[in-house]
Design a protein around this nucleic acid. Structure first.
Length: 282
DNA sequence: GTGAGCTTAAACAATG
DNA sequence: TCATTGTTTAAGCTCA
């Protein structure tokens, strides 16, 4: 099962451009992110897809709120992803620069992005190949004669089936997020409603979602760079990655409100990205 | 109950 | 020869 936690830090403000904080994909900064083929939204959905391959070691998170926050249980082994093999293959291919991958590349992408398959028996690879062969959604491109690296063909998505694959993905995500709100949620557990957080930075700044790769804590117990920030880290842990909701300002916010803001931001990003992907004129 | 879709397993051929 | 890739068949499961 996926074990999650939430925590809240009282910190001092950092330059947001500094440190390991990734840019927010909901605020496109490049043409690539406007591309309808971009599936970067998946990375924002920390409950669905991690941003980076998993580290081999699992550092303990820093918890500075002294009470009410239970010691987290780390997800040493994640549950099976909600996606069908067709969806996994689709995401893998779409996530590649040239929108085509060899079978090995698809394996690698799945293993890197879904830790479940890292430890799963090898039968899933057979299923991947089975899907590639059987599904009309994918077709094979024979490598050019001059290409000697690797064997086998490159696989790509059949354009006519792309909308259907997107729809399946959208439905999967919707079902996943809906069920997540009801049970075995990948989102943070409820925090004490009477907990009040004092924010210290500019109130006028927009609430934003930030994604940050899990930071190692060294032997001296040094904290990650954000620890010295003045921002609230409201984050949860999924697939070895934290999702942060950064809330500058001096307003007092109860954590229930913070949680709602976080959920809303996630929902908007996911919905907006999917509409973009589907060409819905979002 | 039924069919579609999916997963899993297995066998086998082709290929590097 | 061996591992990987690709194809095909079959059985079982879930769900509408």
């Amino acid at each position: 099962s996926q074990l999650l936690f939430a925590s809240c830090h009282r910190l001092s403000p950092p330059p947001l451009s500094q440190g390991p904080v990734a840019h927010c994909p909901s605020l496109p900064t490049s043409a690539a992110e406007d591309d309808l083929t971009c599936l970067s939204w998946l990375h924002q959905r920390g409950d669905l897809l991690p941003l980076q391959p998993l580290p081999k070691t699992i550092p303990l998170p820093q918890l500075t709120l002294q009470d009410s926050i239970p010691t987290p249980h780390l997800p040493l082994c994640s549950s099976k992803p909600p996606y069908s093999f067709s969806s996994l293959i689709f995401m893998a291919i779409e996530d590649s620069p040239e929108k085509r991958l060899p079978v090995k590349g698809i394996y690698d992408w799945i293993v890197n992005n879904f830790p479940y398959y890292r430890a799963a028996p090898g039968g899933w690879r057979n299923s991947v190949r089975h899907n590639l062969s059987l599904s009309k959604c994918f077709h094979r491109i024979r490598r050019e004669k001059g290409q000697t690296v690797g064997k086998g063909s490159l696989w790509c998505v059949s354009p006519e089936y792309r909308p259907a694959l997107l729809e399946v993905l959208r439905k999967t995500q919707h079902c996943h997020s809906t069920s997540s709100n009801l049970n075995s949620s990948p989102l943070p557990p409820a925090l004490p409603s009477d907990t009040v957080v004092h924010l210290t930075a500019d109130q006028e700044e927009l609430v934003s979602m930030e994604t940050i790769e899990l930071q190692e804590v060294n032997e001296d117990g040094e904290k990650d760079p954000l620890t010295d920030s003045g921002y609230i880290e409201f984050h949860y842990y999924q697939y070895h990655q934290y999702q942060y909701l950064v809330l500058p300002g001096e307003t007092e916010l109860d954590l229930e409100t913070v949680e709602i803001l976080q959920l809303d931001a996630e929902a908007q990003e996911a919905a907006g990205s999917l509409l973009d992907l589907a060409g819905g004129g979002h």
